[in-house]
């Protein structure tokens, strides 16, 4: 017993080092597995508060860019609005749109990162604004990511520029689907994998969300095809997608909640049994 104590006292520095190193290694490994990083993240009151203060100063420098983005979006929305045939002069009623299945919340980006292998954003809306895990996040140009962690007033977004991110996407013209992943190299490009090589692909084609995951609605813009090659197996394409969004400059985002998600989930659970 005496010897054990002596050993501990003699090597206390090394043992403390080992303990602390193992704890931090534990956090690191935990953060590498999806949906488990609950303790050390930037969606808490302390970090959110600091980023909020900084953002309130920082946003003045981007006002012009943000205004232009908003103008561009307004222009597009107005064009859509004007092109909708008014309900009175058409006997045709589209029943599939009689109920709105998506709820949209706007939010501000407090922190954005794009230079690491696993990137996250912090938003200024949280549980108090009924934001929950697995809501989709988009801007007027395209998708940004998926909500990954929430606190009372802040939430963290798993960016599409993250090695853990896998988002269902498809070609705009046809219904060939694939998974959107990121190789960690450039913040302008992501990769669409597992696309069947029956799909007709051209450089410049648009990629949109696939709507199979109940997170994003179908048809939200992602990017255009920049380059593509066949997988080693030979059955699927690996497509290099140039994003519409400038991921390095994101100010305001929209959070999408699918109100039918529970229904879809419970239905899928039933079919699994």
């Amino acid at each position: 017993m005496q010897q054990i104590f002596n050993f501990v006292i003699r090597n206390k520095t090394f043992l403390l080092f080992l303990l602390l190193f193992c704890i931090s290694l534990g956090f690191t490994i935990q953060s590498h597995s999806y949906h488990k990083s609950t303790f050390i993240n930037s969606a808490n009151a302390l970090t959110g508060g600091v980023y909020g203060t900084v953002n309130s100063i920082d946003e003045y420098f981007g006002l012009k860019d943000q205004n232009e983005l908003l103008l561009e979006e307004n222009r597009r929305l107005r064009r859509q609005l004007l092109n909708i045939p008014s309900a009175s002069d058409s006997s045709y009623i589209d029943t599939s749109y009689s109920k709105v299945p998506y709820r949209i919340t706007s939010a501000e980006v407090y922190k954005n990162s794009y230079s690491r292998m696993n990137n996250y954003l912090t938003l200024n809306k949280g549980k108090n604004d009924s934001i929950k895990q697995d809501f989709g996040v988009i801007t007027s140009n395209g998708i940004v990511g998926i909500i990954d962690n929430t606190s009372n007033n802040y939430s963290r977004v798993l960016s599409i520029l993250n090695k853990k991110s896998r988002i269902n996407a498809k070609l705009k013209n046809t219904n060939h689907i694939g998974s959107l992943t990121w190789d960690g190299k450039s913040s302008q490009f992501t990769q669409l994998i597992d696309v069947s090589n029956f799909a007709p692909i051209k450089v410049g084609d648009t990629i949109v969300t696939g709507g199979q995951s109940a997170i994003f609605p179908k048809g939200i813009n992602i990017g255009v095809i920049d380059d593509f090659k066949t997988d080693i197996g030979g059955d699927t394409y690996i497509i290099q997608v140039k994003l519409f969004n400038d991921m390095t400059n994101i100010g305001a985002v929209y959070i999408i909640e699918n109100l039918d998600k529970e229904e879809i989930k419970s239905l899928e659970m039933m079919t699994d049994d």
């Binding site: 602390l20 931090s24 970090t47 912090t122």
Partner: peptide
């Protein structure tokens, strides 16, 4: 060692990097 760990952990919290800064700081301190 303890202070380095804390400093690294705070940096990790702010930059959403799990525990990598904490681990690196502890190694440096040791």
């Amino acid at each position: 060692l303890l202070l380095s760990f804390l400093l690294g952990l705070f940096i990790d919290m702010f930059s959403d990097s799990g525990g990598v800064h904490a681990a690196a700081s502890v190694v440096l301190a040791y």
